[in-house]
Design a binder for these strands. Structure first.
Length: 419
RNA sequence: GCCAAGGUGGCGGAGUGGCUACGCGGUUGACUGCAGAUCAACUACAUCCCGGUUCGAAUCCGGGCCUUGGCUCCA
């Protein structure tokens, strides 16, 4: 398989540290609000990647963190007059529910920041001992000047960057916080530097180091996390013992946009996953998402999703009688997946597989993509179908049409073949 | 200002040198108890602009224009 890595800015053969095992870390959400389609896009992409890798026989440990200690959580909890714990547990559950309803179930383990405080403190201590972090009145900071590869991932030259954060307690405005000293309500812990709470970037490296060690295969997340978040992760992890690279394959998903703008909570132009699911089902949403490459920007429009829904319906309508294995079609599918997870091309192969009637492939590949390409036929449904076929054969069209009317009214799509 | 991604037919969206996917839409026909679906064929003046390399470029190189994003929290 070949994957594009942001680190090398090129497509590279995917070679794992262990031949049959893949370690993958994806940045999870900060749980202070409902998740939107932008999140869905990212997590569907990694869900498909992992399912595909597993299908090829790899054992994948897919780790995802949950950021449950953060300014936004503190503020939101205060606004709503609830505890930080209650708020973050609520939206964590809502997030997991949304993921489930989108068929995203490949994650091996979800790790919360707040349950890894000892690991975080330990890592900060080691960074201080290495001489790459320092303690000031307001907290512990990472000294970016000690890390020569700073800016490697984002391609930005640190010296030209203008920080918009003015903080006199930092040596260099680009230094980032590892531990914030202060009282932050219930989510405040004792530490060697005083009571406080962890910075954002350290939680990910503490968690990933615990489960994977200092080097692992893939790190994923949205394009918006490259700077500063992923840069900071690299600086922290690689400063521990100098192991490089922390991760060779950095996979970043493109933005979901609305009218040309990035969908985000701060812009207020977001559609929550649950709202989207009121109009469209998960198969349609996944099909829509996978219709464009994971790194490309994806424009969210009703027309676009409706288009995807029609295309999916077409596949289901065509895929009826099983005519056996379509070798070229199957190869086209795997070739596409091998090529940096080219799902648009893979879906083109699915079209061909449907037309040629390779039901087995549709079922198998449908599981990788998390999309049901076959019409559901439950037992009662097929009994009704049989009865209608019989009625039509006897030319009792009034009764047959009545059944059809009722079925359509109940939301069951039904079409007749010519007699 | 710096950095990044991107500009492909009516629309969505693939494609890193020649033969240009796939889908939606549109047209025509076939089939059809009706509705729908399906099948076949066609459609589509498409590759942001200007140079260059090449026998040949959407694809490589140079310049420009435009869009979006990052440089503050963000999937």
């Amino acid at each position: 398989m070949e994957l594009y890595s942001t680190l090398s800015r090129s497509v590279e053969p995917f070679v794992t540290l262990n031949p049959d095992r893949v370690s993958l870390f994806v940045c999870g959400p900060t749980v202070y609000d409902y998740s939107h389609l932008g999140h869905a896009r990212t997590y569907v992409a990694f869900d498909v990647l992992v399912k595909y890798l597993r299908w090829t026989g790899k054992e994948v440990f897919y780790l995802q963190n949950i950021t449950d200690v953060d300014d936004k959580i503190i503020n939101r909890a205060k606004e709503e007059g609830v505890s930080q714990n209650a708020l973050s547990r609520k939206f964590e559950n809502e997030y997991l529910r949304d993921m489930q309803s989108l068929g995203i179930n490949a994650v091996s383990y979800y790790a919360r920041a707040t349950t890894h405080i000892p690991e975080i403190i330990d890592q900060v201590e080691r960074l201080i001992a290495r001489g790459v972090a320092y303690v000031s009145e307001t907290g512990v900071y990472f000294n970016v000047d000690t890390f020569e590869r700073n800016g490697e991932l984002s391609g930005q030259d640190g010296t030209k960057r203008v920080s918009r954060v003015s903080d006199t307690s930092k040596n260099n405005p680009l230094d980032f916080v590892l531990w914030k000293i202060g009282e932050y309500g219930e989510y405040t812990w004792d530490s060697p530097w005083g009571r406080g709470r962890p910075g954002w970037h350290i939680e990910d490296t503490a968690i990933s180091e615990k489960y994977f060690g200092q080097q692992y295969d893939i790190h994923g997340g949205g394009l918006d996390l490259i700077f500063p978040h992923h840069e900071a992760e690299i600086a922290q992890m690689e400063s521990l013992e100098g192991k490089h690279p922390m991760v060779k394959y950095w996979l970043h998903t493109g933005f979901l946009t609305v009218k040309g703008e990035k969908m985000s909570k701060s812009l207020g132009n977001f559609i929550t996953i649950r709202d989207a699911l009121r109009t469209w089902n998960k198969d349609v949403l996944r099909y829509f998402i996978l219709l464009s490459h994971y790194r490309s920007p994806l424009q969210a429009t009703d027309e676009g999703i409706a288009n995807a829904a029609k295309a999916l319906e077409h596949i289901r309508a065509v895929a009826k009688k099983d005519t056996g294995v379509n070798r070229e079609g199957r190869k086209a599918f795997t070739d596409a997946m091998e090529s940096d997870l080219n799902t648009p091309m893979a879906l083109a192969a699915i079209q061909a597989l449907a037309t040629s009637g390779d039901i087995g492939a549709l079922k198998e590949f449908g599981e990788i993509l998390g999309i049901n390409f076959l019409r559901e036929t439950s037992a009662p449904l097929s009994v009704l179908q049989d009865i209608r076929a019989e009625l039509r054969a006897r030319k009792q069209f009034d009764v047959a049409d009545l059944i059809r009317e009722r079925m359509v009214a109940a939301g069951i799509n039904i079409t007749d073949a010519p007699l």
